[in-house]
């Protein structure tokens, strides 16, 4: 006969081993970008009593870190990274209500959009997905957005990041105008502004008073996170 203590130890041991298998499977499934599989895996982990905070911090986040590293090293490509990012963002939607304070789970909030007169959205959408994948709550305003919609969204959602993109040299100045509108509304200091788009340069970002510039959607998250860490 096992004592109660021994039983508990055995159970804990088993539980830990089941959980660690879950967590490593979650990481791997996230890296491989299999969204449906990941969802099932997380659901059954939760049903088996897994701690949502652990799933996030020891399963998903290490998985996304690995994705980031693989992307940097050229071992993963854009469509693969996007699949992982999407899977991550869907998992977060599922886990968020179960997370406790201190479990992280929200890297921040971002408002993103393409400025007025510009209907180009692929780069902006890629960036939005990458931010979602990194744990940001993203409010994607869409294309052809007038200045006031950016200002209103900043007021309403209180994001820490505002992302804007333009693909046309004619619409690029609209990004500077949005920044000026934020100043006029007295809310410029509340957000870190990051801009991008094919004709946009770091120099241009400086000229119009944006905080950050990303040469492509893939690097935007890293640039933002580094900036935020330094700012802290």
């Amino acid at each position: 006969m096992l004592t109660l203590k021994e039983l508990l130890i055995t159970y804990n041991h088993k539980y830990n081993s089941i959980m660690s298998t879950y967590l490593s499977n979650i990481s791997e499934t996230l890296i491989s970008g299999k969204g449906d599989e990941l969802k099932k895996l997380i659901e059954s982990a939760v049903n088996d009593g897994a701690n949502p905070g652990e799933i996030l911090n020891q399963g998903l986040l290490p998985g996304m870190d690995a994705v980031g590293q693989k992307w940097k090293d050229g071992d993963m490509f854009m469509p693969e990274v996007l699949r992982s990012a999407k899977a991550m963002s869907n998992s977060m939607d599922y886990l968020r209500p179960m997370l406790k304070e201190g479990d992280m789970g929200n890297a921040g909030t971002m408002v993103i959009g393409t400025v007025a007169g510009d209907l180009h959205d692929i780069g902006k959408d890629l960036a939005a997905m990458m931010f979602e994948g990194a744990g940001y709550k993203v409010i994607n305003l869409g294309i052809d957005q007038p200045g006031e919609s950016f200002v209103n969204a900043v007021k309403e959602h209180q994001p820490n990041i505002l992302g804007m993109s333009a693909l046309l040299t004619t619409t690029m100045p609209r990004m500077g105008e949005v920044i000026n509108s934020l100043k006029e509304a007295g809310i410029r200091d509340q957000v870190t502004v990051i801009i991008g788009g094919a004709p946009v340069t770091e120099e241009y970002a400086g000229e119009i008073g944006a905080d950050l510039y990303a040469p492509n959607a893939g690097s935007a998250v890293e640039i933002t996170n580094e900036f935020l860490q330094q700012a802290q």
Binding site: G74, F77, L126, G218
Partner: peptide, 9 residues
């Protein structure tokens, strides 16, 4: 093509 490593056209 979109270069899937550098995200450039």
């Amino acid at each position: 093509i979109l270069d899937m490593r550098c995200s450039i056209y």
